[in-house]
């Protein structure tokens, strides 16, 4: 059943916010060492309590909390990018991965790792440059001589550019001839939150918060764009400037997420879909709901990645694809016509 009334929709968003807070606490509790909820909350709010061991406190504040927050930021960024791209292209298949933007970011990150030793300064920059080059190339290629963007060419161009950048990444890996850098790049290709630190959270948080807020600013225009380019213009929304802004914002969100956690698939595709089924296509509710659920989904996936084969850690991209791909196929099969 779809929740279409505005008040119910708001209620759903508040519930999702509660779910998110619960997910953050759960994400901190679960791991090789289980930590009781009381300890988590006491550590988070800096309550002095002698029954809490210093080690638990350190695990909560220095290891698990930054990791959970990174998951929240990356998951939200990817889900919002996906939702915004689907809105811009009026096509539910659009996502940072299908349009090749994530591959561009990975290639950029690989260049930064291999040639600039992957410092926290160069890595996001490399990823952002790679993502921007891929995004610009795809949009340029998909834009016909009449100035219109055909969705089919857009997706085909995305697949081609994505393949090109993946090949570049493989080539760089081949050249790197093993060693630590190779495992660095491999980590980026598989995706994961294992390298979370307060520094990565501090770098990512302002970008993601600003990026999502900016996308929220355009939600009403995204609704108008469902009328088509000219239809949007007839109700007073300029599609050209909307395209330009959202291209920049989705590239920024995707690139910064990939720079910190590598390529984690399916969040940008599946989360907006599920939210659209649940809340309807109104972007004023879809975008915030996608942000919250994207964050939750990645936190829970990371919990699974940490515990399924503990003490070994699965790449979280394996988990998201494992749940995301069958679910997406199920959607295609059952609701193919309305997707």
């Amino acid at each position: 059943m779809t929740v279409r009334s505005h008040r119910l929709g708001l209620w759903v968003i508040w519930s999702l916010l509660v779910l998110l807070v619960a997910s953050v606490v759960a994400g901190i509790m679960v791991g090789p060492v289980m930590i009781p909820a009381r300890t988590v909350i006491a550590s988070l709010f800096d309550v002095q309590d002698d029954s809490i061991s210093a080690i638990h406190r350190i695990i909560v504040l220095q290891i698990r909390l930054p990791r959970v927050l990174l998951g929240l930021l990356v998951g939200s960024a990817l889900a919002v990018s996906g939702a915004a791209m689907q809105g811009v292209f009026g096509n539910p298949l659009a996502s940072p991965y299908i349009l090749g933007i994530a591959s561009g970011a990975t290639a950029g990150a690989a260049v930064a790792i291999l040639f600039a030793s992957g410092s926290l300064l160069f890595l996001p920059m490399g990823a952002f440059i790679g993502a921007s080059v891929a995004a610009l190339a795809v949009f340029r290629l998909a834009r016909g001589s009449d100035g219109r963007t055909s969705v089919l060419t857009l997706i085909l161009a995305g697949v081609a550019i994505g393949a090109l950048f993946s090949a570049l990444t493989s080539f760089l890996l081949f050249l790197s001839s093993g060693g630590e850098k190779l495992s660095d790049v491999l980590f980026w290709i598989m995706g994961g939150l294992g390298r979370a630190s307060w520094t990565s959270v501090a770098v990512l948080a302002p970008i993601v918060v600003a990026g999502i807020s900016a996308v929220l600013y355009f939600t009403r225009d995204l609704n108008a764009l469902a009328l088509g380019e000219e239809g949007a213009q007839h109700v007073g929304v300029n599609p050209e400037s909307l395209y330009r802004w959202l291209l920049v914002l989705t590239t920024l969100l995707t690139a910064s997420a990939v720079a910190m956690a590598g390529t984690i698939g399916f969040i940008g595709l599946v989360v907006p879909h599920v939210m659209r089924l649940l809340l309807g296509p109104d972007h004023r509710r879809l975008i915030p709901a996608s942000a919250l659920v994207g964050g939750c989904f990645l936190i829970w996936s990371d919990m699974a990645a940490r515990t399924v084969l503990a003490p070994a850690e699965l790449p979280v991209g394996v988990i998201t694809a494992f749940f995301g791909a069958p679910f997406f196929l199920y959607l295609l099969k059952t609701r193919g016509a309305s997707l």
């Binding site: 279409r4 009026g90 096509n91 539910p92 009403r220 609704n223 108008a224 764009l225 469902a226 009328l227 088509g228 000219e230 239809g231 007839h234 109700v235 007073g236 929304v237 659209r276 309807g280 296509p281 109104d282 309305s338």
Partner: peptide, 24 residues
Amino acid sequence: MVEQERAMGFDFLVREVVALGRIP
């Protein structure tokens, strides 16, 4: 303006579509 044909993206409800007219 009413166009000859319009391919509406996504499954908006009729009342949601009409409400888009208030945007300006």
